[in-house]
């Protein structure tokens, strides 16, 4: 018999109206990436050029965002700082993501004693506030960006592991994994080709929102003097430096603050939008 009588499956679901959240987020984040990449060409001044004669100048046609206490152009510093802060987002998110995903995959798929132990480790980590734990580790290792990233990786991976593990445990029992086992694929193939691609969606969405946290943490640690070290242009460091002059020169703190907020919002929207997109795909 022919298959004509079968109901035809609907075509690929129409893309529907454009996902505005993702578009707005993309413009903000993309804008910052462009600014960061082309910073030397876009920034009107050298970010570290001291011009003591024009210190604490208010925003003007020459210095759109004004100058700081030693006469450095705030606009140029905000643009150059985007490089540090964006790199921080990536360097702060990738290591925990890679470690966490690997651990989550293995412990979710095989289960057993190792899985139980890892989950207790998670509970232990989750019992401490994120910032306090990172602060404690950086305190032990000493200030500096590298130590900050190490602390982030040590604390951050458990969340990814937990997330991936939960996904893997539901995928593990699905029939396409049973089919893959029945077809005699190796565990490595099943994990990387069949489990992982289907477990990765929520991880990606979380990683983007996590980068907001990392960026804020980076700025906070810069502010506290435990992250990027002056005179490096970094938003948190800039806010910290300018805080002493907040009464005379609000612009020193204000513009890096706005930059932090806009990138943070952009990333948060992006994470949210990706999550929505994924849910829509799943329900389609």
């Amino acid at each position: 018999m022919s298959i004509v009588t079968q109901p035809q499956a609907t075509e690929a679901p129409a893309r529907g109206r454009l996902n505005w959240t993702i578009l707005v987020a993309g413009v903000i984040v993309g804008g910052w990436i462009v600014l960061a990449v082309f910073a030397p060409w876009i920034a009107p001044y050298d970010p570290n050029a001291v011009d003591i004669l024009h210190a604490l100048a208010a925003p003007s046609a020459d210095h759109w965002f004004g100058t700081d206490q030693v006469g450095r152009d705030v606009l140029s510093r905000v643009i150059h700082a985007a490089r540090i802060d964006l790199v921080m987002c990536i360097a702060g998110v990738l290591p925990p993501l890679l470690i966490g995903t690997t651990v989550g995959l293995l412990s979710g798929y095989y289960g057993g004693v190792v899985d139980t132990l890892l989950m207790r480790l998670y509970d232990l980590t989750a019992a401490f506030p994120f910032f306090v734990l990172v602060l404690a580790i950086v305190g032990i290792l000493g200030p500096g960006l590298l130590n900050f990233f190490i602390a982030l990786a040590l604390v951050g991976w458990v969340t990814y592991a937990r997330l991936v593990r939960a996904e893997v445990m539901s995928i593990r029992d699905s029939e396409y994994i049973q089919a893959a086992q029945c077809l005699g694929y190796s565990d490595r193939v099943i994990l990387t080709r069949h489990v992982m691609p289907n477990a990765f969606g929520p991880v990606l969405a979380y990683a983007v929102s996590d980068s907001v946290l990392v960026m804020l943490a980076g700025a906070s640690f810069g502010f506290l003097g435990m992250g990027a070290q002056p005179p490096t242009a970094e938003w948190g460091v800039m806010i910290s430096d300018g805080s002493a002059f907040i009464r005379q020169a609000w612009w020193i703190c204000m513009f890096p603050g706005l930059a932090t907020i806009s990138l943070g919002l952009g990333l948060a929207f992006l994470g949210d939008g990706l999550g929505q997109l994924r849910r829509r795909q799943v329900s389609a």
């Binding site: 029939e175 396409y176 089919a179 029945c182 077809l183 694929y185 193939v189 069949h194 691609p197 289907n198």
Partner: peptide, 26 residues
């Protein structure tokens, strides 16, 4: 073996032809 649930038994990220070809080359 052929499984019960037609949707759950296929990897949602692979096309039909990839799914069928995979065991042959693996």
């Amino acid at each position: 073996m052929v499984f019960q649930n037609p949707y759950d038994s296929l990897n949602p990220r692979m096309t039909a032809i990839e799914t069928i070809a995979e065991p042959i080359w693996r």
